[in-house]
Design a protein around this nucleic acid. Structure first.
Lengths: 140, 140
DNA sequence: AAAGTTAACTTGTGTTTTGCAAGTTGTATT
DNA sequence: AATACAACTTGCAAAACACAAGTTAACTTT
């Protein structure tokens, strides 16, 4: 019954902020979403190889959680029989505006030497078009 | 030196998503921001009394973190000599769009019986005006 | 002015979550 | 049949967290 922890823990306060954070308000969770939406990553090993170095048990837990929440879907990889692909549902793509606002905020406030701005520029250049592109399954 | 943990931990990947999450990507952190921006709460005991029940040591840690990051400011309460007030900086108010997108997402996807929609309605009715109101220090 | 009260923390302790390494299971390839 | 790859699972030590209790400083009451 340990796999149900997260769901049992769902706080039913009715507050939309709480509701959102209970679904994706975890650092690793949003990084997985970023990998999928912005970088086009699809598989377990893709996510494991991300810059930040998520550990394998946590990754498995978060993927299961996101699947339970209906944010992502798991399917067999048609091109590789021993692989699975994870993809965003509409509920998952609906997180795009949040991700883009985070990028925008960081673009304004990260004054570090190696802050990357490629995504920011796309947002500033044509936000609606960029979001539509992401929703169509094309990473950016 | 343990109080510097969070800052030392800052991952310098250059990724804007990572940068944002390292600043506010913690469930409690955004709930504190919500209390301030949406509910007008200002003091330590205000935050402690929030619905979700943050524990006192975690609250102290997050407030210090947010202060170090320049998201909030601490000052003596002019109306109560034994109290302090926490307020949002511009950097803090710049989180408004993220908060509003979270509320919007939850408004679409929370089908629970007691989902609250008062803030959502304000966003849908006049988003710019509502955000401007929040930035002026008036909660909503 | 001594005693109580409020506000903001800090400290201690037990529990939970996380990170890391290693092991397992189910395909495919050789 | 043996090897390798992909996706996990398991075990254990370390870190983060929750909860209760204690501390310090600024008022208030008696």
């Amino acid at each position: 019954m340990s796999k149900m922890k997260k769901l049992e823990n769902k706080r039913q306060t009715g507050c939309p902020v709480t509701f959102g954070l209970d679904t994706f308000g975890d650092k690793w969770t949003l990084l997985i979403i970023r990998e999928m939406m912005l970088k086009g990553m699809k598989t377990y090993s893709d996510f494991l190889a991300a810059d930040e170095g998520i550990s394998t048990n946590i990754l498995a837990d978060r993927l299961k959680h996101l699947e339970n929440e209906g944010v992502i879907e798991k399917a067999r990889d048609p091109e590789n029989g021993r692989s699975f692909t994870y993809s965003l549902t509409e509920k998952g793509y609906d997180l795009a505006p949040i991700l883009l606002e985070i990028v925008t905020w960081s673009g304004k406030h990260d004054h570090g030497p190696n802050a990357r701005t490629s995504v920011l520029k796309k947002i500033q250049n044509d936000r609606e078009g960029y979001e539509a592109k992401l929703r169509s399954g094309k990473p950016g």
